[in-house]
Design a protein around this nucleic acid. Structure first.
Lengths: 191, 191
DNA sequence: TGCCAATATGCAACTTGTTGCATAATTTAA
DNA sequence: TTAAATTATGCAACAAGTTGCATATTGGCA
């Protein structure tokens, strides 16, 4: 399982609490590997049990205490070792592709709307990516080695997003044609 | 859950046994939604229980009997209805991105090799996609509506694959630079 | 003062997906 | 003729991931 390794990776630079990890995941590694806070808390517990992390309760003012987790030497070693293993790709699962297999004059409008929505969401994500890129990765070749790896992941996200936008436009064009050529039968329009 | 809907979608045109579904998944919908044969058998049982599929044992010569599954009217309705619901995207989970966050002079060679391997695999997949495209989707606008949807999914796969190849090349170029600029410390080379 | 939001952690039940094994018939190759 | 591969289905145990809830502290707003 790699969630544990994603968490350890996130802890390479900064010690964090579960709550902070969950937040960080939303804007960094989490763009490539999503996890809910429940999953993160469970995983943190297991990692502490295995001695790969150690935890420390840190009192805060104006907020409840937090439990900060730090990579141990064993954790760092295990992570470095893991990199050498075989990667597993878990293809993304997206209803949209399955739905497209069900395209019909009835639902072409709905599917076009869904794709338009996706396009919108991807625009926002790309905007975030570009902001990060400009701020932190303007000159990738001048970065320390590890940061160059992060840059490559970011670049993959950007490229994939741009490609997706282009596909959305193509798809919407074709669906518009389909729609005008095949008027939906007048069934009750769905909510 | 959408595996059930992926299965029903695969059964739109042809009645199939679990074994045949597992095979079909490897070369069609399964490129967008992978499932092991165990999952498929379990899901088929549930769908039959719900009355969305019906099964029939078909004796064969030279082979064991097979249990063919067919969409019922209720199944078709449920599927058409599902298309109108909200889509869930489950982002792909790929160790590679997490590993890139761990790039170091030690492992840059290993990661470059992994990326080269991925590039290779994607080439093969694109070759398959293109074969399908030429054979069945040469003139997309002349196809029946539902097939145009399938075409759009295929197109997304092709575009994504081409983008990935380009990224691999960029990444390999940058990693080669990193490697020559930062010779790995002479630790024992891994298997 | 009472309510909501943010911070912070966690349990319990459930669904989904994986791994490893078991079974059984028939064809093909050594 | 024995062994291996293919076709075909399935169980059981486990790991991973989701959903819904529970709890507690503090700050800000009305």
């Amino acid at each position: 399982m790699a969630l544990s390794h994603a968490i350890m990776t996130a802890l390479l630079d900064d010690d964090m609490s579960g709550y902070e990890l969950a937040k960080a995941f939303d804007v960094s590694l989490g763009l490539f590997w999503h996890a809910s806070h429940q999953q993160i808390y469970q995983e943190l517990r297991k990692l502490v049990e295995k001695g790969l992390l150690e935890k420390e309760t840190v009192p805060q003012q104006g907020k409840p205490d937090k439990i900060v987790h730090r990579l141990t030497g064993a954790g760092r070693e295990a992570l470095a070792e893991w990199v050498w293993g075989e990667s597993r790709v878990q293809a993304g699962k997206d209803d949209l592709w399955v739905k497209l297999y069900n395209l019909s004059p009835d639902n072409v409008g709905h599917l076009a709307a869904e794709i338009a929505g996706r396009r919108d969401g991807m625009m926002r994500r790309l905007y975030l990516y570009e902001k990060i890129r400009r701020r932190h990765y303007a000159e990738p070749e001048a970065l320390p080695v590890r940061r160059q790896g992060v840059y490559l992941a970011l670049l993959a996200g950007i490229r994939e997003g741009e490609q997706f936008l282009a596909w959305c436009d193509e798809a919407l064009a074709l669906l518009a044609q389909v729609e005008s050529a095949n008027p939906a039968r007048p069934t009750a329009p769905r909510p």
